[in-house]
Design a protein around this nucleic acid. Sequence first.
RNA 1: GGAGCAGUAGCUCAAUUGGUUAGAGCACCACACUGUCACUGUGGAGGUUGCGGGUUCGAGUCCCGUCUGUUCCGCCA
Length: 596
Amino acid sequence: MEIAQKHPTHRYRTHTCHELRADNAKGTVKLSGWVHHRRDHGGVVFVDLRDHFGLTQVVLDPKVLPEAEKLRSEWVIQIEGTVQLRPEGQANPAMATGDIEVIASTLVIHNSSETPPFEIESHGGDVAEELRLEYRYLDLRREVMQNNLKLRHRIMQWSRSYFDAKGFLEIETPMLVKGTPEGSREYLVPSRLHPGEMYVLPQSPQQMKQLLMVSGFDKYVQFARCFRDEDQRGDRQPEFTQLDMEMSFVSQEDVMAVLEDWALGVTKAAVPHKTLQQEIIPVMTWDEAMDAYGSDKPDIRFDMRIQEATPLLSNLGIVFLDNALAEGAVIKALVVPGGAGFPRSVIDGYVELAQKNKAKGLSWLAFDDNGMRGSIAKFVDEPTAEKIKETLKVSQGDAVFFVAEQWENAVSCLGALRLDLAKRLNLLDNNLLAYLWVTEFPLFEKGDDGSLGASHHPFTRPLEEHIDLLETDKLAARSYTYDLVLNGVEIGGGSVRIHEQTLQKRVFELLGMKEEEIQQRFGHILKAFSYGVPPHAGCAMGIDRLVMLFADQPTIREVIAFPKNQKARDLMFGAPTPMPLSALHEANIEIYEHLD
RNA sequence: GGAGCAGUAGCUCAAUUGGUUAGAGCACCACACUGUCACUGUGGAGGUUGCGGGUUCGAGUCCCGUCUGUUCCGCCA
């Protein structure tokens, strides 16, 4: 595993700082690394020497090695010396090499170091991420960051072997491509040779991998770097890595089977200390997920399902509920375990949160030993209360939140509350990994301007039995889609693709595209599709997010060596930067000031 | 694009209603110390309170502007 040079005559080291044990006592060794800690006792100097592999205590006698007194944090040194068992009672069980120490006979200072802007292993508060990113090369010296990138490597290597063994071919696709039809903004790359024209960086190799299926490669996989010029989040970066794959002559079940095998396998290989909630990944349709969890990526580590409450609260004389129902709303309920004990300010906070999530309001009832109270308590008589408690399975001490809205708004609002409550009630166990398939997403979705858009991408295949709906009730049409969700995070998603020209054209038309636009945007792929397309399906998995969850990190920036900040800026290099006029000129770019 | 929050020593933070010379811990420097392991002890240095303007007898604190960072929404699979 360890790649250190261990030859006894090697110039820099015979061992790493992690491997010496009691068995090595009396041996002569060479070690190189960074001064992690220095403890100068006058007559003896202790140095914890650090390399990629670990720490070893080195003992230096300043009478023999006067330079030992000059050593400071992060200096790079090399020592030669004798391994010795630590004196009786001096072993450090917290250290892997804590049974031994190296008595230095020679000391070479390869490099001194400025005092770092922050301590490599800080024991106080967290250092601002801004500063960490500015000095990323120092930040990456920290053990947690070294471990994050090691874990990332392990996941990628394991996956490569896995797909290789399954007969997948890794094929590289270009970074300079033509604009793709997916929704997000693209990074533009001006062409020097073709003034006024641009490449874009790929949002994903979607079209390329489908064309590889047309070419007959059967099974394709790639660790693909993807680019999106959108605003950042904790789980979003302008460039990120997808495990991209595509297969020919397969059904949805075939693809899901491969991915399930991969996901469970990589989990056991990379994070054996974590617990899988289920050894088989449960499957839920989009409609079921939305209805029960108010999310297309439910966190099923805890239950707290959203329930139907329309019959329970209808016709109780609650005017605003009856009015909502008359307008086609439904009433959905969320039972909050122990919620009756919440102070009023917390309840008010949830009312506010509900309003932020497209609900006009939040009704609530709380049941405890003092009886029932809540915003609609005066409308609920004893028998109705009993019926509510029985139907929704409310225990004494619980509260129930109700939202009356159109179905999708109602459930997604309660879904947002559900996640917030889980944090408050401490229901989220990071050592538990709960995978979930969400399938049969809507084929189309309505944009804010009322226009129809593809909810996945326009190559997604409608369910066989829903093809008729394309002509009658487009929004009801569901598709052969499957998202893999882990602990409420979308790890990846894919679909069965459309391989028939007529159906593909119809979908484009339904999306409101004229023949001219279809040809201009998708002409190249439609042309390819006229030469014999195999049925095919595939998916893309977000490796950054997977590593983030496996490593218990709060953002994907913690598992990317050199990430951008929230404004897509590289704080270490300072990119992006203004370019000299000559470079702009050569790239055929002219910069105009904003006029508006 | 919108909203919130933050910016004080190298780092993490404090500074009461606007009131003395802006403090602490860690880090740093010097000296002492042969068994520490987040060594210890003594001493020391370190600040244009992001920047610009305003109110005031007086501003780290209040107001306006601006820059930077950050979180959420919009956007984005």
